[in-house]
């Protein structure tokens, strides 16, 4: 199996403060990789580096390479908008566009990316995306409802459908369940497991039980360092590094 992303010697700074230190990581295609660690360890900063979400953050600076399809995404030739279409992001708080129906929320990415599509083509993509996000059956008769009128869990799945509609290769998820109740969380987790058949998924999570449940690979970050990355089963039964052991057994963090 090949890698979808290859991170080489990645460091990042907010002003003088270094938040990521020489990170090297291979992210396997069609797998779920979780990034976990205590608050402030750099995990969110890290996944935001994977689709250049920090580009406009004042004082932010990055060095090193992130190779996507063999090309460094920080090269000048890369268009960040195109990059983000291929490397999508789902956030912690469900953020459907207000004043748009559920249908429009999913279709909006297609509208913005230029290509003319007929209403029926559009409907097809919306249905396919909602099905993949395990939301179609609940929503098919209510597609005109405002996206914001759905339940929190449905809103999050709507945002996942929106991200899938533009056919990304990689899906980044920044704590996608931390604003949701356990039932909605279970649905999103199952969805993540299913989606990893087709997509490469990188999830940031505070919740190590969740990392255990959904991940093929787990990376443990601490104070800007990548302490350890391995198969989830290895990390949770016999981690190599003492700091990982202490974190997952609740001794600190």
């Amino acid at each position: 199996m090949e890698n979808a992303l290859k991170v080489k010697d990645l460091s990042a700074w907010f002003g003088e403060h270094q938040v990521l230190k020489n990170i090297a990581m291979d992210i396997r295609r069609n797998s779920v990789t979780s990034v976990m660690g205590p608050s402030g360890c750099g995990k969110s900063t890290f996944i935001r580096c994977l689709n250049r979400m920090h580009d406009l953050t004042p004082g932010f600076r990055v060095s090193g390479d992130v190779l996507f399809d063999g090309r460094n995404i920080y090269s000048e030739k890369i268009d960040p908008v195109l990059l983000r279409r291929k490397v999508g992001m789902v956030f912690q708080q469900p953020n459907p566009f207000p004043r748009m129906s559920a249908f429009e929320n999913v279709a909006v990415g297609l509208k913005f990316n230029g290509k003319k599509r007929s209403r029926s083509e559009m409907a097809e993509v919306v249905e396919k995306s909602l099905r993949m996000a395990a939301l179609w059956d609940e929503l098919k008769d209510h597609l005109d409802r405002p996206g914001t009128s759905l339940s929190g869990g449905q809103q999050q799945r709507l945002c996942i459908a929106r991200a899938l509609a533009v056919e990304p290769e990689v899906l980044l998820m920044d704590e996608p369940c931390s604003a949701l109740d356990p039932v909605s969380t279970a649905k999103i987790e199952e969805l993540i497991e299913d989606l990893s058949d087709k997509y490469t998924i990188v999830v940031v999570t505070h919740n190590m039980q969740q990392a255990g449940r959904i991940s093929d690979f787990v990376a443990f970050f601490l104070l800007g360092d990548l302490v350890e990355m391995d198969r989830a089963a290895k990390i949770f039964t016999n981690p190599a590094d003492k700091r990982t052991e202490e974190y997952i057994t609740g001794r600190f963090g």
């Binding site: 039980q209 255990g212 449940r213 989830a232 089963a233 949770f236 039964t237």
Partner: peptide, 9 residues
């Protein structure tokens, strides 16, 4: 069994 206990709680 060990993996399920560790990963699935």
């Amino acid at each position: 069994c060990l993996e399920m206990i560790a990963l699935r709680q």
